[in-house]
Every structure is written in structure tokens, then in C-alpha cells.
């Protein structure tokens, strides 16, 4: 494999958006293996890549592969997310949940105002997105330093998705309460018991997202 051939394969993969680590590495190996194994050694890399594209079902087929890969990771991570979340309500992790519940209850007694919880929830809901972004940035820098072609991982985006999907509406909700103060929202937020339960669930979910991201980052959890 010459440098020029390597570059052509990389460009092919980038052009077809197979530019995340898991996809890039698997398809790079596939193409190199098939190229080395080609029956007609006179065939150059460009015509070989055309054959590869055809076998992959053209641009449409490659898009399907990309979507299927993301969906597969999504399924694995949402299953793991549920496992991690419920583990906070089982021994020994339930101790953490009780500790959070106790702390929040005490806070409601010391600061009996919904404003504090609104801002607390805002801060908490931002944590997974911030940490997920940090992991993604760290990986990006590592790839640049090592001269890798890819800059991101499918697993990072799959682990970040639940945090984005579920904490974002909460974020919007709290913001709208703070800014516009609708009657229903105020009634709900003035109910301290409800606020406590909601805050505990939010903190537990945030911790779940953080654990999921840590696992994705340290590669403990991979579909690989």
C-alpha cells in the first residue's frame, strides 16, 4: 500500500461521511484487505474504489450503513442508560439517591424558594452536555495530535444524545418559568414536595448520563 493509495482510501471514506473512528477503521481495513486481495493486480485504487462503492450499494447504500451503525449504537446506549438509571434505585447505589433526596429536602427547608431550584436544575441539566462536549473535544485534540483522519466517535455522540434529548426540554421549561412565569409552572414549582422529587429524578438522570459518557469515553461500554 503506497502513501498515495492510502490517501485515496481516506479521501473516499471522508467523502462518504464514514469519518468517525468506529466506521473509518472498519471500512479502511475492509477496503485495504479487498485491494490487497484483488485478482487483477493491474487494477488501480481508483477503479477498485468504484467497485467497493458498488458493493456497498452506492451512495445510498453507504448512507444506510451509516444510519444503521448510529441506530445500533443508539439501541445499545439507551439499553445501558436504563440499566444505569434503575441501578440508582437498587442497593448499593440507592444510598446515593437517598443522600440526594435528603440533601434536597434539607435545602427546601433552609431555602424555601422555588427560584433556587430553578437555577439548581438549570446548572445540573447543563453538566452532561458540558462534560460530553469536553470528552469530544479531548478526543478531537488527541486525534489531531496523533495525525488521525477521523476526529470523533459514534459512541460519543450516542452517549451524548440522551442528555441532549432529555435535559434540553427541562432546560427550556426552567428558562420559560424563570422568564415568563406561567401560572401552571409557578404552581408546580411552588409545590416543594413535587420540586424535591423532580430535582432528585433530574440529578439521578444527570448522574446516569455522566456515567454513560464516562463509560463511552473509557471504552468500557462499546458495542466493540
Amino acid at each position: 500500500m503506497t502513501g498515495k493509495e492510502h490517501k485515496s482510501i481516506c479521501a473516499f471514506l471522508i467523502d462518504h461521511r464514514l469519518n468517525q473512528q468506529e466506521l473509518f477503521e472498519e471500512f479502511y481495513d475492509h477496503i485495504v484487505s479487498s485491494y490487497e486481495d484483488r485478482p487483477d493486480k493491474a487494477e488501480n485504487i481508483h477503479s477498485h474504489l468504484e467497485t467497493v462503492l458498488k458493493d456497498l450499494g452506492g451512495k445510498k447504500g453507504m448512507r444506510k450503513i451509516l444510519i444503521a451503525r448510529h441506530q445500533a449504537y443508539g439501541r445499545v446506549y439507551s439499553k445501558r442508560l436504563k440499566e444505569l438509571f434503575w441501578s440508582f434505585f437498587r442497593w448499593p447505589m440507592a444510598l446515593y439517591s437517598l443522600l440526594i433526596l435528603g440533601t434536597i429536602y434539607l435545602l427546601t427547608l433552609i431555602f424555601p424558594t422555588q427560584q433556587l431550584f430553578t437555577w439548581l436544575m438549570l446548572l445540573i441539566s447543563l453538566a452532561p452536555i458540558t462534560i460530553g462536549g469536553f470528552f469530544a473535544l479531548k478526543f478531537n485534540r488527541k486525534c489531531r495530535k496523533e495525525g488521525k483522519i477521523y476526529r470523533s466517535r459514534v459512541s460519543h455522540s450516542a452517549a451524548l444524545k440522551p442528555a441532549l434529548l432529555l435535559t434540553f426540554p427541562i432546560h427550556i421549561w426552567n428558562l420559560s418559568v424563570t422568564m415568563f412565569g406561567s401560572d401552571v409552572a409557578l404552581t408546580l414549582n411552588q409545590n416543594m414536595a413535587l420540586t424535591t422529587v423532580f430535582t432528585v429524578l433530574l440529578i439521578t438522570f444527570t448522574l446516569t448520563c455522566l456515567r454513560l459518557m464516562t463509560e463511552a469515553n473509557t471504552e468500557k461500554l462499546t458495542t466493540s
Binding site: M62, K64, A72, R75, V76, T223
Partner: peptide, 16 residues
């Protein structure tokens, strides 16, 4: 077996 069918199958089995 075309690669366009193989990889989604592998990834699906892996996810399952």
C-alpha cells in the same frame, strides 16, 4: 454477500 448488506447486519446483531 454485498458489504452494503453485511455491515448493517453485523452491527444489528452486535446491538442485539
Amino acid at each position: 454477500i454485498t458489504e452494503g448488506a453485511l455491515y448493517p447486519t453485523l452491527h444489528k446483531l452486535e446491538a442485539e
